[in-house]
């Protein structure tokens, strides 16, 4: 047995990007280990994307079918992947740190009695031991840690979304599709999802916005967001906030950027009154350019920024917005 097993995730349109990313990571591991790469796809959407999954790097697809898999009950998804593991006996399981995956990974590990590394940026094979080395941020992003898996049990890695680029699809690739019917008992669902309430804000999603304007404790209060919203409108971007500001009630938690919060990857992230604490940087370090406006010249944000102004945002921002407006309109 052995091999690499990926917990695939579907969406209404087909395959979630995370699955393609995990395939790229798996193929990279396979280059060192020679392991076969399999993907488990759960639910009725599986068959429609099996070929796509093979073209993205899978040698095998487990198409897992059961009535309980149709409405995203976590315990059903967990029991299903546990059943695939019993059949496939993988040496590595890759899961994405999605809303579902962040719980599936560790709970599967506890059920199998094996180790799990969460929110990893990188995973590689140790050429000496043949075991995995997983790299992940710790201490709120202040440090990086490398972990390995003692013993010989399955190794579970939960990978951060967008940490790995998907491979180009290769339609000449072939693979096997294996049907799995775990025959799940309804009594396994003990924490039942009864309702999902969506509160999508208008305009560009923060995670997808090419321009983000972020407000931190330094802006002093909720009213300051009016000016940040204005700048976002002028630049065609979205507004975000540090956790402190959300906890203080100045803006809703859905605007929170950070380790616990949203991860943004804009071309430009303009921070206003944000100190740049590691937990916040963990959510925005993938920004192509960070521009910082802060009163404190020693603020951590200036170590991550490309451009900065040391000063009171109340004096800096109005003329910044005015000039931006002129430049965009000219």
């Amino acid at each position: 047995m052995g091999g690499i097993l990926i917990f695939g995730e579907l969406c209404p349109d087909g395959l979630q990007s995370i699955t393609a990313e995990l395939l790229a990571a798996a193929r990279s591991l396979s280059e060192s280990s020679g392991d076969e790469v399999a993907v488990a796809l759960l639910g009725s959407g599986a068959d429609a994307v099996s070929q796509e999954v093979i073209s993205l790097g899978a040698d095998k697809v487990y198409s897992v079918q059961d009535p309980l898999l149709e409405n995203m009950q976590l315990e059903a998804q967990l029991a299903a992947i546990e059943a695939v593991c019993a059949q496939a006996q993988p040496s590595v399981v890759l899961v994405g740190r999605t809303h579902l995956g962040r719980d599936i990974g560790p709970r599967l590990a506890f059920r199998l009695g094996v180790g799990v590394a969460q929110d990893c940026l990188e995973v590689a094979v140790d050429s000496g031991t043949g075991r995995l080395i997983a790299t992940r941020p710790v201490y709120g992003g202040n440090a990086l840690a490398r972990f390995t898996f003692p013993g010989d049990g399955a190794q579970i890695v939960v990978l951060r979304p967008k940490a790995v680029e998907p491979l180009m699809a290769d339609s000449s690739r072939t693979g096997e599709v294996v049907a799995v019917q775990p025959a799940l008992d309804p009594s396994i669902i003990r924490a039942r999802l009864v309702e999902t309430v969506s509160q999508e804000s208008e305009g560009v999603r923060l995670e997808d916005a090419p321009v983000v304007i972020g407000g931190g404790r330094g802006i002093g209060g909720a009213e300051a967001f009016e000016m940040l919203e204005e700048l976002a409108r002028v630049m065609g971007g979205a507004v975000g906030a540090s956790r402190a500001v959300c906890d203080a009630g100045w803006i809703d938690h859905s605007y929170q950027i950070g380790l616990t919060g949203k991860t943004i990857t804009p071309d430009i992230y303009i921070t206003v009154g944000i100190s740049g604490a590691s937990q916040h940087m963990a959510g925005c370090s993938a920004s192509k350019n960070i521009v910082a406006i802060n009163r404190d010249a020693d603020a951590n944000i200036f170590k991550a920024a490309t451009y900065g102004v040391v000063g009171d945002w109340k004096n800096v921002l109005p003329s910044f917005i005015e000039t931006v407006r002129e430049l965009i309109n000219s």
């Binding site: 590990a109 009695g113 094996v114 180790g115 799990v116 590394a117 080395i133 710790v138 202040n142 440090a143 990086l144 840690a145 490398r146 972990f147 390995t148 898996f149 003692p150 013993g151 049990g153 910082a292 406006i293 200036f302 170590k303 991550a304 920024a305 490309t306 451009y307 900065g308 102004v309 040391v310 000063g311 009171d312 004096n315 800096v316 921002l317 109005p318 003329s319 910044f320 005015e322 000039t323």
Partner: peptide, 30 residues
């Protein structure tokens, strides 16, 4: 342990910020 720490380090950044200055803070913003 089922997961063992092998290395803990602070990543080094060679980034150097360009601080923009002006006659006053409003000018710096511009």
């Amino acid at each position: 342990p089922k997961l063992a720490l092998t290395e803990l380090f602070i990543p080094v950044s060679d980034k150097k910020v360009e601080i923009i200055e002006g006659e006053n803070e409003a000018d710096a913003g511009r």
